[in-house]
Design a protein around this nucleic acid. Sequence first.
DNA 1: CCAATTTATTGTCATATGTCAATAAATAGT
DNA 2: ACTATTTATTGACATATGACAATAAATTGG
Lengths: 233, 233
Amino acid sequence: MEYPKSQVCKSCDNCNEKSKAFSVLSEDELRILNKDRFEVVFEPGQMVMKQGAPATHFVSLTQGMAKLYLEGFDKKKIILEILKPWKLFGGPGIFTDMRYHYSVSTISESAACFIPVENVKQLIRSNPTFAETMIVHSSMNGSRNFERLLSLTQKQMPGRLADVLLYLSQDVHLSMRFNLSITRQEIGELSNMTKESATRILKDFENEGIIRIDGKEIEVLRIDTLREISIRG
Amino acid sequence: MEYPKSQVCKSCDNCNEKSKAFSVLSEDELRILNKDRFEVVFEPGQMVMKQGAPATHFVSLTQGMAKLYLEGFDKKKIILEILKPWKLFGGPGIFTDMRYHYSVSTISESAACFIPVENVKQLIRSNPTFAETMIVHSSMNGSRNFERLLSLTQKQMPGRLADVLLYLSQDVHLSMRFNLSITRQEIGELSNMTKESATRILKDFENEGIIRIDGKEIEVLRIDTLREISIRG
DNA sequence: CCAATTTATTGTCATATGTCAATAAATAGT
DNA sequence: ACTATTTATTGACATATGACAATAAATTGG
């Protein structure tokens, strides 16, 4: 793995500005946070964080795109999130058993900044506002996981796929038309179905004029229909 | 609803002792916490907390037993937890949109103590150790929900039911033999299957000599087999 | 103690979805 | 540019599981 100088952070300021979690910190506190930070560049498909490994660092994605996923049984995965820059992750294990509870691997060429957990914990202990920020952060993940649990367990495939398309369009790419950076396999892992089923239902949606597929590009044509399908289940 | 005097807390001391979350608080801080607490007694089947309603209080179950569940589509529920005394709940909404993100209703006659969220938040802001306790609490819920997500989405019915039996035996009743306080419907809601399937697979387990069912009583005879079934999926 | 209601059991059937296999298309490596 | 590998598509088929229905058993309320 290379560490091209040009891509390594010159300073953490940029990162701190973009990650709203750090906006409540003073100059001095940022210094603590920045003390032992370091950045690593990843090629596509490389592992940033491994489920089960010791949880030593919080990580902030600074460039590229990655997937955060649970490793289940028989190598089956559930992708919980597509990560974009300035997303901070590390997981619940940092405050419990000091293990990572999910894996993260890159989708495109990426860079990530590693912050030792002890430095973050030190700030939590000294700055209650920052602690509250962490609680809010963790709570948002919590509610999001409840929604996912309901979507994945109670909806049929079209509803689950609609949820994933809405997620990709509205939360990840912020556009009705986007270049699909993930495979059918990964769409399946987002919606808990096989790649074959993902292919089939995507085609169904296309035939019904709900989306347009052109190579790697997907355009959402009728988002309301997608929302209906999502609600109907 | 009645409020039998004899069952209302005489003091919060008892509650504070039992809820380890509060063990880090000083006398003065406990006074803040106790200031506006009040206890309510519930009959079986009554609702303690309603998903979607304004999140105004943290709640601690002080007597009885309750179920914490997500209300999904078509009135379908997922039970996330069987609550026993001294379990504190309120959910992620307290730190995000100020709504409850799950419902809680009693299984047996119960009592619960309601603590205004503002008092807890005040302590979080003033006592970093307490704040960290809250983060740990929320993190444990987080990892537990990951496990549930995997169990419910990737295992077949026998695996899911095995998980539920292990949960009931090891986490709820703390015994190999316990009186089943919940219905088949609720076993189904714990394992994401219909009550008919729950019935059938329970009987299968009984026929295979893995458990013994006698009326409302269940005895786990071969816990290792149950664990195997859980792992095999 | 009896009627009314809820809960549990059991069987039949329909179907959503996974599995496997064969091919096609796209991508990557030399 | 050409082969090798990965990814996508499509079809045929098997099966886990839900839906419905009919009793049976248990619980509750008077």
